[in-house]
């Protein structure tokens, strides 16, 4: 048992770099999309609002695996273009998917900043940009922290799908270990789960931290 673990763990560790790089890149991409789409949905311009709404509903309404396969198989066929390497396809799919979910968090948090704050800022003769940057946004960001933490854990879980488009992540090496020795399969996958859990631990900790920050000094 111990020997088997010592055998398997280093093999799985070879996939760590891909899993972590996909996690970081797609998380950053998702945050970016979240703020862009979240703010666009609050825009005064109807066309921008409707268009972003369409993006959010389409990506929230279909599942990540469908979007990933669609980008991987269908986009090259439809447009005759390659989206770059598989790494990029994975990052784009995960980023767009969770960006759509997170944009709702951004939108909701901005909307939940008390109306009086906007009015006070207007009374202090601030421009709408100043109002957003100095008054609304700093208060809204705090409220977003716990949900951003939760969704980052979801993104980590989502990265396991990139093994399906041939990326050599932890799960990919797990699959290889399994096919070489089927009787070890349960142990291999248990170790894969442990690997993911270890990666998730700092995120869980950050989420809890975010929860306590978002609660601090808020009257409710």
């Amino acid at each position: 048992m111990i020997n088997a673990i010592i055998d398997i763990a280093p093999q799985l560790a070879r996939g760590l770099s891909i899993t972590i790089s996909v996690l970081l890149a797609s998380a950053i991409f998702a945050y970016l999309m979240a703020f862009i789409a979240g703010l666009c949905r609050l825009s005064q311009n109807t066309i921008i609002r409707k268009f972003t709404g369409l993006y959010v509903e389409v990506f929230r309404g279909t599942s990540l695996i469908v979007q990933l396969f669609w980008l991987y198989y269908a986009v090259p066929m439809l447009f005759g273009i390659q989206l770059g390497s598989n790494w990029w396809i994975g990052v784009i799919a995960i980023g767009l998917n969770y960006g759509a979910y997170l944009s709702e968090v951004v939108r909701g948090s901005i909307l939940s900043v008390a109306q009086g704050q906007t009015e006070a800022a207007t009374a202090l003769n601030m421009s709408s940009f100043q109002r957003m940057r100095l008054i609304i946004f700093p208060q809204a960001v705090r409220m977003m922290l716990p949900e951003f933490g939760n969704y980052t854990i979801q993104i980590l879980k989502g990265t396991s799908l990139v093994s399906l488009i041939g990326m050599t992540d932890i799960l990919y090496y797990g699959d290889i270990m399994r096919s070489s020795n089927l009787s070890q399969a349960p142990l291999v996958y248990l170790l894969v789960l442990v690997f993911y859990f270890i990666l998730a631990l700092p995120l869980i900790w950050l989420t809890r931290k975010g929860e306590s920050i978002s609660r601090k000094g808020v009257a409710s």
């Binding site: 854990i153 980590l156 879980k157 989502g158 990265t159 396991s160 799908l161 799960l171 797990g174 699959d175 399994r178 089927l182 009787s183 399969a185 349960p186 996958y189 248990l190 894969v192 789960l193 993911y196 859990f197 998730a200 995120l203 869980i204």
Partner: peptide, 22 residues
């Protein structure tokens, strides 16, 4: 619960599929 929740369901599916007969 935290372990189940923060690890990928895809891997859990594989685990159950292969671990069951064992």
């Amino acid at each position: 619960m935290e372990f189940i929740r923060s690890t990928p369901p895809l891997v859990q599916l594989f685990f159950i599929y292969y671990a069951w007969p064992m």
